[in-house]
Every structure is written in structure tokens, then in C-alpha cells.
Amino acid sequence: MSATLRLLGGLALVAGLAGCAQEAAAPASTRRVFFADIQGQARGCTVPRSVSLTPGQQTESTMTLANDGGWCGITVSQPGPKPYDAGLLVQRPQHGRVHVRKVGDVTRVDYIPDARFAGTDAFTVRLVPGNPALRVAVTVQPGAASATAPAPAATPAATPARR
């Protein structure tokens, strides 16, 4: 009898602890963040802390970075948070590359300036699902990858294509 009671008590204790554990645990993400996706950020990368996108609408944002060959990225996400399924490049930058990738629970929209470029640039991506668009106005400051050729020829060249 007493052995049965001890067993029941033990089970109740285990069940109680399990309940506590479930309450204490935050909803942990199962999406991994890979080292390859977080290394190589450009010096002086300055972007808005939070960019909220609206389905079907375009959001404007800004980005400033030093051209040392690294990337500068704006993070966006769906509610949850969870990353978007994919990105589409709607408007190409004139003086750099765009890389849209999932980084854990968010989608990061990266811009990598061309070597030796300093000045202004812009690009637009659309995200799936929901079709929100993100237009980014970029300011690239001289850095290690632009030091060999200061900017005069390239600086004003980013704007004409948008007319």
C-alpha cells in the first residue's frame, strides 16, 4: 500500500515538474543560424532597427555602410516571427549586389557594394508570400574596398536610372 502511494506520489511529482518545464520554456525556434550567414558584415553598417512590411505595399528604408567588401543587411520577417519564403529582385542596384537569405527566424536583405564604389545606390526587392516590397536607398562611404579609387565618377551615377 505504502509502496503504491510512494509510486503515485513520485509520478505526480514528475508530472508537476514537467508542467513547470512547459510553462517556463519559451517557444524556441527550430530555425538554425549558420556562421556563414553572420560573418562579413561591413563596418559602419547602419540600418533601421525594425522594418515592418505590409502585404502588397512598398516600404522605403535606408542603409549606410563603409565599403570594406562586407555586406549590410536589413532584417524583415513575417509574424511569428518567421522568415519569408523567398525574395525577388525587382530593381537592381547600379553599383552592388543583393543577397536575400534566411537567417534563423528572419529574412535578411543584404547589399554588397562594388569594390571601389562610394556614393548612393538603390534597389527594390519583393518578398513572398504577401508581396510586400522593400525599397532601400543606400549610402556607401569610402572604406578599404573603395580607397584605391575615390568616388567622383560613380557618386552621382546611381540616380539617373530611377527617373
Partner: peptide
């Protein structure tokens, strides 16, 4: 990602984001 694209014609715009 690539199979989530809404339209087949979205493929080049998707490829352009992969660097």
C-alpha cells in the same frame, strides 16, 4: 524557396537575390 515562387516567371528575379 524556389518551389515557393508563385509563378514560373519569377525564377530569374529569385536567382538575382542569391549572389
Amino acid at each position: 524557396e524556389v518551389m515557393a515562387l508563385p509563378a514560373v516567371t519569377d525564377l530569374p528575379a529569385y536567382a538575382a537575390t542569391k549572389d
